[in-house]
Amino acid sequence: MCSYITEIVAISGSGKGRNDWTTLDKAVIYYDHPVHAPFDHALNIDFTNSVTNERVAVELSAQSARDLIARIEAALNSGDSVHLGSQDAIREKLAGGRQADRMIEHVPPFI
């Protein structure tokens, strides 16, 4: 399927790319043809630095992606209980929490 439905979200963090660690400020998410994963369609995420255009790419099966979403939520929830009151949590609350990682754009389907 050539849906090319693309979601873009602002993120804050780092990733290790081809050569070294880089700051990441945007994630581009789409469920479409992967380049490398052996599936017709995959959940693909490009974690990018929009200044340098560096990219950390992942291509996951749909089930893997759903499992990952669940485990990310579980990890965050358990981490919140452990780290509540930590400097990281305080900084995040001051910055508006994870809600700051808002959806910034929805790109309509194209082909």
Partner: peptide
């Protein structure tokens, strides 16, 4: 090619 394609995709093609 895949990196360049990713940039184009992020721009809507």
């Amino acid at each position: 090619a895949d990196d360049i394609g990713a940039r184009a995709r992020a721009d809507g093609g």
